[in-house]
Amino acid sequence: MEKKIICTVCPTGCEMTVTGEDGKVTSVVGNTCKRGEVYAASEFSDPVRTLTSTVRVENGAEPLVPVRTEAPVPKRLIPEIMKLVNGITLQAPVAQKTVVLENVLDTGVNVVTTGECD
């Protein structure tokens, strides 16, 4: 199987052609760095994305605080994670890097705040 993949590791956006079977990559053409090759393999088998969103804050100076997954998570889980994120309400004050969802959906990745709210 052959797949055209645009690398999103950096803004260059190399256009790569990935060949492989059953999620296993046999060749990557078109990347200009090693990171592209790693990305191509991941994108070919089980694509991952960093999810960012916001979480409600009560009694704070602002109504929301931004959050992210600390590392990329499987793309297929993102709708499910969004439901969990939207179910959270924090109480101010909230510090940066507060864990709001630990090991979300057993991905081994935490959802943490990226900003703060007094």
């Binding site: 960093t50 960012t52 969103s53 916001t54 931004p66 940066q96 990226t114 900003g115």
Partner: peptide, 22 residues
């Protein structure tokens, strides 16, 4: 700008807007 993609050149990691300015 709560999305990631900031700081790849300067910090060599993908930060969100709030993390970058902090």
């Amino acid at each position: 700008c709560i999305h990631p993609g900031f700081g790849l050149k300067l910090f060599k990691k993908e930060l969100t807007g709030p993390e970058y300015y902090t």
